[in-house]
Amino acid sequence: MNMRQDVAAGVIGVSENFLGKVERGGETVQWGLLFQVMQELGLKVSVEVPDEIAGETRAQIVRAFNKPAMTMSPSTSTSSSDDLGRLMFAIEKSLSDKAR
């Protein structure tokens, strides 16, 4: 996008360090901030789940998001809930698009 990393980070509202981790494919970035970066850059995530495993995939995602939420502070678990909602919405949209 021809934008310096420090400028982009300031516009998006994240640290330059965080944006650098995203660009390098860091394995420990926060989902909420990652979605914020993607939204500000106009990027969208699409999840396609095969029908035969959709139910189990939903259950695994819910378990994965709920497990860390038990050890986090209430403000962090709210962020996890928001992330889970976004992910579940993407899965549901993918399934409904396939049904058409």
Rank of each mutant, 00 (worst) to 15 (best):
K93R: 13
F65I: 01
G25E: 05
R58I: 10
G42A: 13
S15R: 14
R100W: 10
W31R: 10
L19H: 02
K67R: 13
L19Q: 03
A69P: 01
L34F: 06
S81V: 09
E92D: 15
P50H: 06
S77T: 09
E27I: 11
E23Y: 08
Q60Y: 12
S46F: 14
S80G: 05
L84W: 08
G20F: 06
F65E: 04
M38Y: 07
G25N: 04
A59N: 12
S96Y: 02
V37P: 01
T71D: 15
Q39W: 08
I61A: 08
S75R: 13
R4E: 09
A99C: 01
S46D: 12
M70G: 13
P68M: 13
E92F: 08
G25F: 01
R63D: 15
E40H: 13
N17L: 08
V11E: 15
R24C: 09
E16Q: 14
L41H: 06
A9L: 04
L95Q: 11
E52W: 04
M3G: 01
L95M: 11
E27T: 13
G13E: 02
E48F: 15
S75W: 07
A59E: 14
I61Y: 03
T57R: 09
D6N: 07
P50Y: 06
G26I: 00
M3T: 07
G26Y: 00
S15E: 04
R58S: 03
T76R: 15
T78H: 12
L19E: 03
V22W: 05
V49A: 01
A9G: 02
D82Q: 11
E40D: 13
P68N: 12
R58F: 14
S77I: 00
S94M: 03
S79D: 09
A69C: 02
R58D: 10
R24M: 07
L87M: 12
A69I: 01
I53H: 09
S79M: 12
S46N: 14
T76K: 15
S15W: 13
R58Q: 08
I53N: 08
E92A: 11
E56V: 14
V45R: 07
L87Q: 04
S96K: 14
Q30I: 06
R4P: 02
A99L: 03
L41I: 06
R100Y: 12
V45N: 04
V47I: 15
K67Q: 10
I12V: 04
M38T: 03
V11M: 15
Q39A: 15
D83V: 10
A99W: 00
T71V: 14
G20H: 10
Q39T: 15
G55F: 06
A64M: 07
S46M: 13
A90N: 02
K67W: 06
R100C: 14
V49C: 05
A99K: 02
N17K: 11
K21T: 07
N17H: 12
K93P: 02
F89W: 03
S15Y: 11
V37T: 03
Q5H: 08
V7D: 15
V14Q: 01
S79Q: 10
E56Y: 14
R63W: 08
D51P: 01
D97L: 09
P68H: 11
S81T: 12
A64R: 05
G20K: 10
K21Q: 13
E16R: 15
V45K: 10
V37N: 06
A8R: 00
S75D: 10
F35V: 06
